[in-house]
Amino acid sequence: MKTATATPVRLGDVVITVLLLAVFVGAYLLAQDWPFRTKLFPGLLATAGIGIAVLKLGGHGVQAYRHRTRHSATRQEDAGSEQGDDHSIEYVFGTAGARAWLAALGWAAAFFVALCVLGVFITVPLFTLAYLKISGSAGWLGATIYAVVAGGVLWFVFGELLAVPMPAGIF
């Protein structure tokens, strides 16, 4: 508890660092074909990024070593960084089950795919109705009113009154 270095290495951190390292290496390589003034800044930046990423990975190595030798790490430190409140985003992300994730991502994907294909004015009422009925188990009346009002207000204010550009779909 006294030192942060005694906490176990989180695999995710290592994976992210490795991914970032790959991004910086890629950025460095891509920059090689450019004229001098174009590549100077990206080159320096990518080099710095690679350096920090390696440093970070090295730190993880030391951390893993210390953790193993001391056996004194407690899970408390981890719990400390996440508030005990079940409302916090870290907690929800950490504890949600695979099915919940799949459902949430599925709905989000459905919304944005529909947005790109059907355009905002069709997607919004359709999605609202479907989401409220299926995921939210709302009543037909409430869901329908919400869907119609949301679609109608959006169409009227953004489409007709102000003619603001909106995702229009591929049609």
Partner: peptide
């Protein structure tokens, strides 16, 4: 701090996306 630096470096890389102001070459 190291995580912050890495995120900042990634952010700068994102900032470099686009036509470079010197030579007019598209980057990333």
């Amino acid at each position: 701090v190291l995580k912050g630096f890495l995120m900042a470096a990634l952010g700068m890389l994102v900032a470099l996306v686009g036509i470079d102001p010197q030579e007019g070459v598209p980057r990333y």
